[in-house]
């Protein structure tokens, strides 16, 4: 269940819209923040807090790829493999991350430290290859740089 503070936060969001349903997306982000991902329980909580049917909550949540639909590690790496990044060796970086941190695309490392998501273009073609770690932006990647960067995320 959401605690009082979270419920209050959702109430504030609700107040911004004429319809409860409109508060779904921001409330789902809050649920994701609280539960780490959108579990059935998390979606039930949103459904109850907004009085929007559960199936509608899940239908909406499942449409968007930026919600997490399965448990993720402490840090989420989002690596681009579109054309510019690919030409500059992004696919090798996927393999590197895979062996060095034991995490495959779409998966989570056994120590729960990293999840790896292959992204479509993140608009950094001029400084490719590029990735996002959580909400931080990193570009001009190489195996060495990735190691340096990811060491900071424990």
């Amino acid at each position: 269940m959401f605690n009082e503070t979270v419920l209050k936060e959702i109430e504030e969001i609700k107040a911004k819209y004429p319809e409860r349903r409109s508060a779904l997306l921001p409330s789902l982000y809050i649920a994701q923040r609280e539960f780490g991902w959108l579990s059935h329980e998390a979606m039930e909580c949103v459904s109850k807090a907004l009085n929007v049917p559960e199936a509608m909550v899940r239908g909406t949540a499942s449409f968007y790829s930026m919600y997490k639909h399965k448990p993720v590690g402490r840090h989420v790496i989002q690596l681009c493999t579109n054309i510019s990044c690919m030409i500059l060796g992004a696919e090798k970086l996927v393999d590197f991350i895979g062996t060095r941190y034991e995490v495959q695309p779409g998966g989570t490392s056994p120590d729960n430290r990293f999840s790896l998501v292959i992204m479509e273009c993140i608009g950094a073609c001029g400084t490719a290859p590029a990735m996002l770690v959580n909400t931080d932006f990193h570009e001009n990647l190489s195996e060495k740089r990735i190691e340096e960067i990811l060491d900071k995320y424990k």
């Binding site: 059935h40 979606m43 049917p53 559960e54 199936a55 509608m56 909550v57 899940r58 239908g59 909406t60 499942s62 449409f63 790829s65």
Partner: peptide, 17 residues
């Protein structure tokens, strides 16, 4: 409101919660 279209694009399917 027991069912909804889940997912997107080619993977869209009707499912209960």
């Amino acid at each position: 409101s027991a069912i909804s279209m889940m997912g997107r694009g080619n993977h869209t399917r009707m499912e209960p919660f």
